[in-house]
C-alpha cells in the first residue's frame, strides 16, 4: 500500500467560480479560499488562449 494521498486526509480547497460552493464549503468547516472568477480577455476565449500562449513564451 502506498502513502495515502494528502488531499484525501486534509483537503485544502481553492474554489474557482460559483460563490455558492464556497459558502457550502465554509459552512462545512472546510479549509478553503474563494476566487471571484471573471472571464479573461473580456470573455473572448480565443483572445484568452492567445494571451495564455504569450504568457508561456
Amino acid at each position: 500500500m502506498r502513502e495515502p494521498a494528502r488531499f484525501l486526509r486534509e483537503p485544502k480547497i481553492i474554489n474557482v467560480g460559483a460563490k455558492h460552493f464556497y459558502d457550502d464549503l465554509k459552512s462545512q468547516g472546510a479549509d478553503t479560499v474563494h476566487v471571484d472568477w471573471r472571464p479573461p480577455a473580456g470573455g473572448d476565449r480565443e483572445m484568452a488562449d492567445l494571451l495564455d500562449k504569450l504568457k508561456k513564451l
Binding site: R6, I13, I14, V16, G17, F21, V35
Partner: peptide
C-alpha cells in the same frame, strides 16, 4: 489564490 495558499491541494472549478 495558489500563491497565497501554497499548501492548497484541490481546486473546485465551476
Amino acid at each position: 489564490a495558489a500563491e497565497a495558499r501554497p499548501d492548497s491541494n484541490l481546486v473546485l472549478v465551476s
